[in-house]
Design a protein around this nucleic acid. Sequence first.
DNA 1: TAGATTGTTAATCGATTAACAATC
DNA 2: TAGATTGTTAATCGATTAACAATC
Lengths: 216, 216
Amino acid sequence: MNDEICRNISLTSLRRLPSYLRYLKTQRDNGIDYLSSIIIAQAMELSPMVVKKDLSIAIKVEGKPKLGYHVDSLIKDIEMFLGYDNKKDAVLVGVGSLGKALLSYEGFKNYGLNIIVGFDKEVNEPAILDKKILSIDKFSNLTKRMNIHIGIITTNKEAAQEIANMMVEAGIKAIWNWAPVKLSVPEDIVVKNEDLAASLAVLSNSLSDHQIGGSI
Amino acid sequence: MNDEICRNISLTSLRRLPSYLRYLKTQRDNGIDYLSSIIIAQAMELSPMVVKKDLSIAIKVEGKPKLGYHVDSLIKDIEMFLGYDNKKDAVLVGVGSLGKALLSYEGFKNYGLNIIVGFDKEVNEPAILDKKILSIDKFSNLTKRMNIHIGIITTNKEAAQEIANMMVEAGIKAIWNWAPVKLSVPEDIVVKNEDLAASLAVLSNSLSDHQIGGSI
DNA sequence: TAGATTGTTAATCGATTAACAATC
DNA sequence: TAGATTGTTAATCGATTAACAATC
């Protein structure tokens, strides 16, 4: 009766989309025009059902029975869905070794993310590759002026909450937090925690005696 | 009838354990002796039920009705369960900016991981902090001799598969892969992919119009 | 046309949430 | 004892898997 019941986009599907993209691009570069869910599933070690469900959330150009999915269209659709088409600007605070690593990571531009500048308390070097490093004093002003909505925190855990507050004040809407703390932010701010300890726990567990059920 | 049916340890529970640990340690340092699931849940923005279920997978010393959990015992139990008690040695291949960041990340020692050495094709500096950097030629020999079972790949995507093969040959059992490729390894090798693109997809999605249901 | 693969609807499975007896 | 909080067993919820009609 109600057509507006929300489309079921699962978090796990969303997480898998970037890896489909990687695979599809390599196949496109090999000159492949069409791929079936069966082939994709084999290559990515998933079941064809999962592939079909996942792709269905992003797809505009439907697959063709017997042929499969048109690779070029599929890539475009997924990129569109993931927002890789319109580059998103981000700022980073905390130019330690991790901050430097993210600032110099070339891959982000493929994913629609553009870290335009790094901030730190002390500016020891003027830039990392082509990214300027500025004093934290200039954060608010620049972020507001450039209307930036994504902030990346790579400070130590002591500074993280303070930086988060500053980000919120400056109009940041989404925070990618690499510091090992739980940030408290207003409800409308999205926080994605990159928890190295949690990753490690999963890996470590797989080497121990008491093991969780599924695959990682 | 069958007592041996596997205990249900969920992946999500496992991932949350490190953050309990962080919270419990701060509270212990504040001089708190007992904490109830209700208090913990509030602090971590979970429901008390989730807390009780999560803790129950790791716990040896039971909580006390009316009082709650004994913080010290709880910390010890979780650390034991996560294997933080016996430090695990790991080796890292690919001393680019990301590799350097991981080599110099102080936090790992709290999580029972000890990256003892970094390898690269070209050795531009002899060490990062106290971690030696060695030529990749020495990988197999050293890894076998020291009987190391965890390998971290922070190379570019072109080199990753080759390095994975080398690791497997040298007796590595678990691989933490930061390169954006799907590695193919024998079935008994555990691979944990750290997929920056997937993280970013989730963050990015939250800023867009078509949004997934749950919280991140 | 026959065979293969699609998108979708129904069944299964597993994790989260709720309910509750046990107990300090 | 009464109240609070535990651990556990049952109900709900959501995602994964299976089944199948539609179609190229």
